[in-house]
Simulated assay, not measured.
Amino acid sequence: MEPVRQHHGAFQVAGLTARTTNREENDSATARIGALWNRFFTEETYRSTPHRTEDARIFGVYSGYESDANGAFDLTVGVAVSGGKEAVGIEPGDYLVFTAQGEMPHMVIDTWQRIWQYFEANPTITRRYRSDFEAYDGPDKVAIHIGVA
């Protein structure tokens, strides 16, 4: 399934953040993303986040990129907010949107594999590496938004 190009305005997300790399995530001894998501749900961070908007989706925001897919990045797991000092900004611009539905976490892992394959097969499409995000409409449905030039 081909991604759909969409333009998004800026918005903010707040929650829990960890810094990691794709290499670290491929080793269970150094992986941080699964534990971050578990903490988010166990502590019910979505209930206690101040300045929450009416947007009911849960987000995984990738930002603070050191370089590209090989460098370090921040992942913020959270909810849309109207502001606050802990919020991370989603930059306005064009995004390629990859959608999937299925069992977690395999659905998301498979979709990220599809994303990397897509960009390998389409080298003329340039990722911005500024802000990318996963938007969850439920426990088994995701839309991953990749910022492009």
Rank of each mutant, 00 (worst) to 15 (best):
R5E: 14
H8I: 11
G9Q: 13
G9F: 07
A10N: 10
F11V: 08
F11T: 05
G15T: 02
G15Y: 02
T17F: 03
A18E: 07
A18P: 03
R19E: 08
T20C: 00
T21I: 03
E24I: 02
N26I: 02
N26H: 13
D27N: 14
D27R: 06
D27K: 03
A31D: 02
A31L: 04
I33Q: 00
I33T: 00
A35Q: 12
N38K: 15
N38Q: 14
R39V: 00
F41D: 07
F41G: 08
F41L: 13
E43M: 09
T45Q: 05
Y46D: 07
Y46M: 11
S48Y: 14
S48T: 15
T49E: 05
H51E: 15
T53N: 06
T53Y: 10
T53K: 09
T53D: 11
T53S: 15
A56D: 14
A56H: 13
R57T: 07
I58Y: 05
F59Y: 15
F59D: 05
G60N: 06
V61P: 03
G64F: 02
G64M: 06
A69S: 13
A69F: 12
A69Q: 12
N70S: 15
F73A: 05
F73C: 03
D74K: 05
L75M: 10
L75Y: 03
V77S: 09
G78Y: 04
S82M: 11
K85S: 13
E86N: 12
E86Q: 14
A87K: 00
V88M: 01
I90Y: 01
P92S: 15
G93A: 08
D94N: 15
Y95K: 07
F98R: 00
T99A: 15
Q101L: 10
G102K: 06
E103D: 14
M104H: 11
T111C: 10
T111F: 02
W112R: 00
R114C: 09
R114T: 13
I115P: 05
W116A: 04
W116M: 05
Q117G: 12
Q117N: 14
F119T: 04
F119N: 04
E120P: 05
A121E: 15
N122P: 07
P123Q: 09
P123S: 07
T124F: 09
T124L: 12
I125L: 12
I125H: 12
I125S: 11
T126H: 13
T126D: 14
T126F: 08
R128S: 12
R128P: 06
Y129I: 02
Y129S: 06
R130Q: 14
S131D: 01
S131C: 08
E134P: 02
A135H: 04
A135L: 09
D137E: 15
G138A: 02
G138Y: 01
P139N: 13
D140H: 13
D140P: 08
D140C: 12
V142K: 03
A143Y: 03
A143M: 05
A143T: 02
H145W: 04
H145R: 10
H145Q: 06
I146E: 01
G147F: 03
